[in-house]
Nucleic acid binder design. Sequence first.
DNA 1: GATTTTTCTTGATAAAAATCAATAAAACTA
DNA 2: TAGTTTTATTGATTTTTATCAAGAAAAATC
Lengths: 226, 226
Amino acid sequence: MMKHCGECITRLPIFNMLTDEQFESINYNRCKVKFRPGETIFKQGTAMTHVIIITEGLVKIYLEGTGSRNLILRMARPLTIIGGPGFFTDFKHHITSMAIEETSACFIDVQKMMELIKENKDFAIAMLKWVNIHTQNNYLKLVELTQKGMHGRIAGALIYLNNEVFSGKYGDIRIHRQDLADLTAMSKESAIRILKEFKDENLISVVGNTIIIHDLPRLNAINIKG
Amino acid sequence: MMKHCGECITRLPIFNMLTDEQFESINYNRCKVKFRPGETIFKQGTAMTHVIIITEGLVKIYLEGTGSRNLILRMARPLTIIGGPGFFTDFKHHITSMAIEETSACFIDVQKMMELIKENKDFAIAMLKWVNIHTQNNYLKLVELTQKGMHGRIAGALIYLNNEVFSGKYGDIRIHRQDLADLTAMSKESAIRILKEFKDENLISVVGNTIIIHDLPRLNAINIKG
DNA sequence: GATTTTTCTTGATAAAAATCAATAAAACTA
DNA sequence: TAGTTTTATTGATTTTTATCAAGAAAAATC
């Protein structure tokens, strides 16, 4: 009866090291919320009172830049924690997260999380590890976006979407042109043009917002060579 | 006699929460090393056996990208820890650090650091905070480099160098053209041209590798508007 | 189902930025 | 100091990428 939150917290490796009591402390007053596509979950700049765990759906996590330009850092599927670098610093959200598909999320109190980090070293280390892996991704992203041409960036984004976001049970890639542009730091028109080139060369097929990769090896080659 | 390492560890806030015993455990077999300009301290991809604390000089921290292109993440002065996201993950260096000026650094054993993190919650939290602040900087960098034009990026870099790297006792900005290019993700030639424009408009003066900012407000304006 | 709104597409054009090449100036080395 | 290497500069050119505008298609709304 203790760990009744099977969908949510128990399956996340990062919570494995909690005692029953500790687990219950964050489980007690958490709440589950549903979001429709297009709804904002966290907004960059607001107070970070909670972190969430995605339990269903798909979320995009992005930076709001200058002049309504966004930069998508990643897409998140269940089971992912969405927190951010506000932890132990300014307790603000530094990212905006928005539901792309119908999404459910568990809200967990940040105060409770902090207590656990202070109480439980293994949990603290797991958090540190988690943050460091994100830093590694950010480093890759920095190089990707500043040193590769548009073709390489689109190829990279498609591979990412294929392997990590729409893999297995999630079916074909479904993404808006603007999101693909925000993921690759280019204009929407440029993204469209390159998508069309890839289609004309039979690397992919495109029907509406659905993209199917036909020639992953060649896409990989484009991704690597830039 | 315990905390004889006044130059190095004691002045770093992150070590404040250590007990004398804990402090001594990392102080015991640390070693201080000197580097000449151009010498590599850590190399991306190698095993992370130590972290360092810069005690003298100036270091550039960068990502080695594709085809000998580098991206400078930041410059580090005393007293800065240089570690990286290999901590608790793959224990490899994900950044390269190279001395720009004559530099001294204390090498601290990573195993010892890890023991301390496990022993001392406050230290673990300080680390978490430290990593999060870096993530915030990486986010800013991502937006800066993907959404701003070259003029804005050079202006931003000059302001950064002026306010955070060559402030106070460190004198005027001294930087190679290639480093300025690697800091702003553009070609060396482009960096040179924009520098010349800024000089022609009396925003800065340039003599060799020395840059003096004359019109910070206008540089700020360029930085903000992109 | 008609209308409105949003998203997508395409072409033309302009702007931004990289590359190439050749020289000049500095810094280093023997 | 002479020679060598590295770094900086400049102009010409090409490539890359964004912007603008107008129309088509799709999706949402009434």
